[in-house]
Design a protein around this nucleic acid. Structure first.
Lengths: 222, 222, 222, 222
DNA sequence: GATGAATGAGCGTTCATTCAT
DNA sequence: TATGAATGAACGCTCATTCAT
């Protein structure tokens, strides 16, 4: 695992194997993602995943410890993807609340629509499955919360605001994620209303912006 | 068949049987609720439920069609209980946003703490289990949304406000529930932070009040 | 159980009870017959039978020892009914082979069509169920065989024939029943061809008449 | 996908696996056959079959869809075996009614005695079990009927006979099978009279030969 | 006599996981 | 590395039968 030592003498065939390994890994993960999202975690057997990935059951176990691990990896991936989508939106925005608007729209118009399997994994299929899975969801959630809090801090600084309470920034972050999750659940999973998502997202973003503002106050002079 | 005639002469033994039936029903339901919440839906076998309720497996199947039905009934109960808690808070409040504050605090300080098993059923154990269960959750959710929207309408009238958009009242309702759910999940299920829930709830309520306001505007004069 | 002693002092209410008892017994038996024939013995639960007979499960067990007993009684009834149908045909016929023709037609045109539930019980639902049931079927079969052999003996006498072998009369009887059973099974249960049954029966009867003749020979003079 | 190319290079280990697979399949099927025949279909649990075949329950389900499938396969096998036994007898006979005599004797003296488990499956254990099983029995029956009718046609041609009616050949076939079935049932399953089967078969064959003749007539000159 | 709630052994079936090849 | 047959514990569910009322 020493990168320097390993990097050089990698023969061509070894490199090809490496590439194939990663390809296989991703193929299996994708197959699982799609099946978990479409059929449900418990309705998807390991054999079914192997079939869909066009490998043997044994191969799935070569790349993943077990079924739970497969789900855990998908949670990580889905969480990472969501952070990317939101992060990109924040980066492109001015350091005021515009970032939160952009991020909100990115969630509803990009993540929900273009990564709906990941959405399903993160907010539906991985819920209440086991200690380990719940731990992974918690971690993914915490990373997201941290990102949002960082963005929040920047806004604070940029606008000379402070939080009304110690907890405020965390509560804001959790609340925003709650809104994302539930609005998506309601309109994507339950109503399949993908067309109206832009308008829905618009109001949801307005709501959360109002919420943020209400936990800010202008910084007192010292 | 004559209701009046039939109602009265219900013999004492028949009445006792009726009572016992309902008691048994509730005993089983409670056992299942507790086990589902504590061990997880999939980790709880029907035999385990029967044992906990001190009845035979067959008895469980006499009162409930199957395991799924047990969960569906628990969803209904949990949803109903939540509506009661929130409804009571609204009733005791003035017809302005105070109702939403009271309801929020009721959720965090009453429902989350005194009905944590129901919380777990509604927001964790019943997620992503099956078509039928999801349908039941959706229905429970819709009833809650309707309640919140009704409360919203009253505030509108009482304060001469109107919604910024057609969707606004629904989005508000969904968002509030999203905040409830996620904040509860974060601090109860993941952090087990029951002591701080009052403070947490306080900020969360502030957040959602800000959100609501941001989707209101003063009614234009005609 | 002494018939003479019991017969006289039967009070009116006792008689009514007796009648009701027999009515109930028959109602349950009919319900079971219909359900066994239509849904299959194993697909019919005791509860289902009780429902159909509009009595409680306990009542069924009051009149019948168990499910097996219900089937055994139905076998007896079905066998008795078949004997009646065939016996009547024999009685109305001349003491030559005409009786066998009439009996054959009676089987296909009366028993198969008017007592198809009994047919199903006797030839389908009771097959291979248990030692006891099989014993009952054997007994029913033996009574039928005896009847047929008696008819055969009469034809022998009347026409001055004798059997080619000791076994002949039994084999004839068994074979005739085999033809009845299988032809009925083929055209009723498998093809549902009730309309063509007359023509079918005609050929089947011709076949068995030929068979009988082939095991007869003219009695040698002594 | 090229059959010629693919057939050859089947590696030795692959071939051995193939052989083992088929062996296992047959072992399980045999175990089931024996148990179904001896204990009855409903009294035989899948676990019992697995034990008898010295494999795990899972292995049984690897080779067969379910218990019903096991029975269905056994029906096919039993039907095929019976066709072989009868077919061989017909082939060895002259193209007159001798074939039907030989086939009859083959049934009673070969099939009934050497394949009594198959006899039990075909005529006892598979009766009235389910839609699917009944369908399989019907198919097996139809193939047998077709064979017999073919043999009948040949006799017709060879002896310049014709059938008395359109239905005749089918009725003959069905009747013959009915005689086989019932005679076997009576003397094997009910009386366990294996010793007398030759004599019994002799008379039964005489009976059915008489039956056939009675549905033939000499072809009219044109 | 009649009821129907309660029992609980037993069954068919699934599927995550392993391991010899 | 890759295969896929084999495992077997575990589960949901059924239903004939009983028995207190």
């Amino acid at each position: 695992m020493n990168d320097v030592a390993e990097t050089k003498p990698l023969s061509k065939s070894a490199m090809r194997r490496q590439r194939e390994r990663e390809l296989r890994y991703q193929t299996i993960l994708s197959a699982a993602e799609s099946l978990f999202a479409k059929e449900g975690y418990h309705n998807t057997s390991m054999e079914r995943i192997a079939d869909a990935a066009e490998v043997s059951v044994g191969a799935v176990y070569f790349y993943f410890k077990n079924k739970e691990d497969l789900l855990a990896c998908l949670i990580d991936e889905s969480g990472y993807c969501l952070r990317s989508v939101l992060g990109k939106a924040f980066l492109e925005a001015t350091p005021d609340l515009e970032g939160f608007k952009k991020a909100g729209h990115a969630f509803f118009e990009d993540y929900c629509l273009n990564h709906s399997d990941k959405l399903a994994i993160l907010f539906r299929e991985s819920v209440g499955q086991s200690k380990i899975v719940e731990e992974r969801r918690k971690n993914a959630s915490e990373r997201l919360i941290k990102d949002v809090r960082n963005a929040l801090e920047k806004v604070c600084e940029g606008m000379n605001y402070e939080f009304k309470s110690n907890l405020a920034s965390e509560i804001i972050a959790v609340s925003i994620l709650g809104i994302y999750e539930r609005v998506a659940y309601q309109y994507i999973f339950w109503q399949g209303n993908t067309d109206g998502l832009k308008a829905i997202g618009h109001d949801a973003v307005d709501f959360l912006i109002g919420g943020i503002k209400n936990l800010f106050r202008e910084k007192e002079c010292t």
